[in-house]
Computed example of a mutant assay.
Amino acid sequence: MAGKLALIAAGGTGGHMFPAQALAEVLLAEGWRVKLSTDDRGALYAGGFPAAVERSIVASATTARGGVLGKLAAPFKIASGVLAARRGFRADKPDIVVGFGGYPTIPAMSAALTMRLPRMIHEQNGVMGRVNRAFAARVDTVACGTWPTELPQGVHGIHTGNPVRASVKDRAGTPYRVPGDGPLHIVVIGGSQGARVLSDVVPAAIAALPTEMRPRLRVAHQARKEDHDRVVAAYRAAGVTAEVRHFFDDVPARFAEAQLVVARSGASTIADLTVIGRPSILIPLPTATNDHQTANARPLADAGAALMLPESVLDAESLTRDMHAVLSDPSRASAMAAAALSLGRPDAARRLYDLVTELAV
């Protein structure tokens, strides 16, 4: 078969899948063959992968969640996935296996380890996830999206940045339109899985903005399906123009148009904000493993690119205060956008590709 083969293993959230997609795009452009190994949930976020990427659904599980029976069955399900991955590798041997974290990466990374294939992981967050942490000392290279990243003792990482999809890179450094007398575009996004608290608090906070500002607001709010109707009703009652969907497939375009983004601080969201360069109010997910979303948001807050508002102190009043502070001060908003852009790594996918080619010799 023509071309070297990269097997990309990624878990079931957009935070894992989007950087995996970015690497796949570069690999294909350089003449590689690419296979994606994920689970049923991850496949939901694989729609943007190029058609040339061969997808395989693997059996995987976690012992950290689920009922007693699920926890007891998990090791057997994982073992089945590892054996299936080994069979697949023997039939079409990868030149390298790249893991992006999440439980669905366990079979591919385990098979690569036992077969002594070149292997590396990419950690998106400022604190390593459970699966990447388990493999960190057993791979050839650890690439880090957020810097600094908390790593296991004795493990050294290479800062590549978080790869962004072509649709984000195409809008890298799009000129920022400062808040003025025209429309004010606000994007509200809780990550690929949504966030109930944003649906609870943001509409009320926006409704409390000054009366003369509200008619100019254009809100794009990503809400979970079960929250959709009440969010629509809240904006309608406030007289605010809002588009509410459970998933936006054009987030890069919306970020490029936005004067302000209110979001969780998942790694992919941070990467998109810094590559495009937009001011934000970041509300870290408090239940994220080892509080990694706070670690993700801190560099932006320290650089003046974002306001970080912990969920423990989040309410409509505080969010109204912070939103108004940005939208009513063009010079501050412009400085925040510039600070965000200064942190961006639009070449992260290329940096990661360079590491891949060094290992797959």
Rank of each mutant, 00 (worst) to 15 (best):
D181L: 14
N162A: 14
N162K: 11
V178Q: 11
D181R: 14
G161C: 10
V164W: 07
V178W: 11
I186G: 07
T160A: 11
I189F: 01
P175F: 02
Q193C: 10
P179Y: 04
S192R: 06
A205T: 01
A204I: 05
S167C: 14
G161K: 01
I189C: 14
V202I: 06
T174Y: 13
H185L: 06
S192C: 10
L184K: 03
A205K: 00
V201R: 00
R177T: 08
A166S: 15
I189W: 01
Y176A: 03
K169D: 09
I186S: 05
V201E: 01
L184M: 09
G161P: 12
P179I: 00
N162H: 12
A166C: 09
V187H: 05
A166L: 13
V202L: 04
V197C: 03
P179T: 00
V168Q: 03
P179N: 04
D200T: 15
S167Q: 13
V187N: 07
G194E: 05
H159V: 09
G180Y: 10
V164D: 01
S199H: 04
Q193N: 13
P203M: 08
P175G: 01
P183G: 04
S167I: 08
P163K: 10
Q193P: 14
G173D: 13
G180W: 12
G191C: 12
V164G: 07
G161Q: 02
R171K: 13
R165L: 11
V178H: 14
P163M: 08
A172L: 06
G182L: 07
A195Y: 01
I206M: 15
Q193V: 06
V197G: 03
H185Q: 15
V187Q: 05
V178D: 12
N162I: 02
V202D: 00
D170E: 15
V178T: 03
A166T: 02
L198P: 00
P163T: 00
V187A: 04
L198F: 05
T160W: 15
R171F: 08
V197N: 00
G161V: 05
R177W: 09
G182Q: 07
P175Y: 04
L184Y: 06
R196T: 15
P175N: 03
H159D: 02
P203F: 08
Q193I: 05
Y176N: 07
V197P: 00
S192A: 14
P175A: 01
A195R: 00
G190M: 07
G182S: 07
L184S: 07
V202F: 01
N162R: 08
R177V: 10
S199M: 09
V187S: 07
V168P: 15
A205C: 10
V188K: 01
R196F: 12
R171M: 14
R177M: 07
I206K: 05
V188F: 00
S167V: 13
P175H: 04
G194M: 06
P203I: 10
V188H: 01
A166V: 02
G180T: 08
K169E: 15
P183D: 04
V197A: 06
A172K: 04
V202N: 00
L184R: 06
H159S: 12
G190K: 01
